[in-house]
Design a protein around this nucleic acid. Structure first.
Length: 114
DNA sequence: ACAATGACATAAG
DNA sequence: GCTTATGCCATTG
């Protein structure tokens, strides 16, 4: 776990249940606005039972990505629905209702500092 | 050091 | 709304 992954995990762990954020949002919080792909990759290489709520991170359209696993999508969706997140007919999440506001700059700093 | 890779994002057709 | 093309970045082999 090198620096970036570590930071990604720390932020993701702060996502409250029933809320979701996009990969890009996480990247922006870490001040790497164009590292969304890396964020996704970090979650992808996440070992099971790591305590990181990876399911709460989806793409900018409010859809689950998990493209490398057939059932990954169903799993992620099931996990989110279990937390109260709702999906519309096209399988999208309403950012207005379930989108996580994120952390303030200071909160991020404090988080990364620790 | 170089090339390839991936759970993205955004613009364009 | 869906498909294609292009940009971006850290990690790996």
């Amino acid at each position: 776990m090198t620096g970036f992954f570590e930071r990604v995990y720390r932020v993701v762990r702060r996502i409250p249940p029933g809320r979701v954020v996009s990969y890009g949002d996480v990247a922006r919080m870490l001040e790497h606005p164009h590292a969304a792909r890396t964020v996704g990759w970090a979650l992808g290489s996440l070992p099971e039972g790591s305590g990181v709520p990876w399911q709460r991170v989806i793409n900018s359209e409010g859809r689950v990505s998990t493209s490398h696993q057939e059932d990954g999508v169903n799993l992620q969706r099931a996990l989110l629905e279990a937390e109260g997140v709702e999906f519309d007919e096209s399988g999208r999440v309403d950012w207005g209702r379930f989108g996580w506001v994120g952390l303030s700059r200071q909160e991020i700093e404090a988080l990364l500092d620790a």
